[in-house]
């Protein structure tokens, strides 16, 4: 098995009386595409917030590239190479597409950054009018822009929170291709949260199943989807094959 890029060990997180993460442990292999699935409210987004430094874990360790990063500020995590998208899309609405991309700090010279921005925009299919104001884009295009923007960080690890929800299968296909492409060309590691099982099955080499703040099962998509515990966890929650729609944050 390849070196794990991210190791989460026995992490706990409370919100007042809510025990959101209950001793969660898992590993994400470097240069892999790993899925993270689980019923609504099981703690996937909270786990992302812990890994990216938005929240500090109550206890437990978060090790990224061999370094304990628990509690580091989000901007530090970003500089270390951990990028994330938000479940509710957060583009800078009054700025143009290109400005959204160029806002991201980097050590690269300006010319190189602009070229890279163009390349990424082209890959996701937003190269058309870089001067368009982001707020005027369709919902799907805003999601694409947020997705594209994180690659300006030249990240090592990318956390994607339901970027496939509510967009057309054609666009989903395109995003999947971009993910695979960045994985093979640049060795980027992806941790993908989604309720769209078709995407998870197609895209991921390994799937982690979360339930009530813990990892319940892990394995290949085929193994996991036949695991009795997983099916039980989902029972009564939702059908596992349908695309995600109107869920709360």
């Amino acid at each position: 098995m390849p070196e794990p890029l991210l190791v989460v060990k026995d992490v706990q997180k409370h919100f007042g009386g809510v025990h959101a993460i209950r001793g969660c442990s898992f590993q994400v292999a470097g240069k892999s595409i790993t899925g993270l699935v689980g019923p609504n409210g099981c703690g996937k987004t909270t786990m992302f917030n812990l890994v990216t430094g938005t929240f500090r874990p109550d206890s437990g360790a978060i090790v990224f590239a061999g370094r304990d990063v628990a509690g580091l500020r989000p901007h530090v995590m970003a500089r270390l190479g951990v990028a994330r998208t938000f479940q509710l899309t957060r583009v800078f609405k009054s700025m143009s597409i290109l400005q959204n991309m160029l806002t991201v700090p980097s050590e690269q010279p300006a010319g190189e950054r602009t070229r890279w921005a163009a390349e990424v925009l082209d890959a996701v299919g937003l190269a058309g009018q870089p001067e368009t104001t982001a707020g005027n884009l369709s919902f799907g295009d805003q999601k694409l822009l947020e997705f594209a923007r994180i690659f300006m960080l030249r990240p090592k690890l990318v956390l994607l929170d339901e970027i496939f929800a509510g967009i057309s299968p054609a666009l989903q296909e395109r995003q999947m291709n971009v993910i695979r492409d960045f994985q093979t060309r640049f060795g980027v590691t992806f941790l993908v949260v989604d309720h769209t099982m078709r995407v998870i099955m197609n895209l991921c080499q390994e799937v982690l199943v979360m339930n009530q703040g813990q990892i319940l099962a892990r394995g290949t998509p085929a193994e996991v989807s036949h695991d009795q515990r997983v099916i039980e966890a989902y029972l009564g929650h939702r059908t596992t094959t349908k695309g995600g729609d109107n869920r709360g944050a």
């Binding site: 990216t52 938005t54 989000p74 901007h75 970003a78 806002t103 991201v104 700090p105 960080l153």
Partner: peptide, 24 residues
């Protein structure tokens, strides 16, 4: 400038700006 762009990013969405590596 890039500096101004990042100030605007803070205005638009401070948390997103921070997640992109801006020391807000």
């Amino acid at each position: 400038s890039a500096f101004g762009l990042r100030l605007m990013a803070i205005r638009e969405d401070e948390e997103a700006a921070e997640s992109l590596g801006i020391h807000t």
